[in-house]
Amino acid sequence: MKAYKELYYQLFDGLHRFSYSMVRSKEVAEEIVSDVFIKLWQIRARLGEIGNLKVYVYTITKNFSLNYLQRTYKNAPVSIEEVEVEPIVEMRNPEELFISAEIMQTIRQAILQLPPQCRLVFQLVKEDGLKYKEAAEVLNISALTVRNQLAIAIRKLGETLPAPVQKLIPATKLFSAS
């Protein structure tokens, strides 16, 4: 049970975020993650047979989330490419990054404008630290596609940032005696 709890704590963030980006309700996402863990509990004796647990749980989470969408909405998407994805790029404290709230907003906008699959790739690789190969398996696409999609996402992000001439922290501010 202790190991189970640890696993839950370890995976909850990522799975919840992943599910939320598809179902867009914290409560539903929480229930879906709960269902995923009930599933894990049921098959706990055979977990050793699963090649990559991370890929496995993300995949069930994806399936459960899609099931939920199909059940809840009439014109439900049947595959992940059609899901309207809302990535949560959480940045608690922009000041820490020397980024203004305005720039933060631009970044969020940029991410929102990415195609769904691109957004999911960005989220799985950035937020959840999945390898290209793992994200590819979860989303049922090739690793090469993951690689390219991520590059597109990062490029879009880079292009929305202010021009490179503008220094982030003026050197004077850093070194002047206060």
């Binding site: 950035k126 880079g158 940032l161 982030l168």
Partner: peptide, 17 residues
């Protein structure tokens, strides 16, 4: 560098719940 540095900052921040 400036641009990549900024993206690296954003990339590394991942506040857990």
């Amino acid at each position: 560098h400036l641009r990549t540095g900024m993206i690296e900052n954003i990339w590394s921040v991942n506040p857990p719940l």
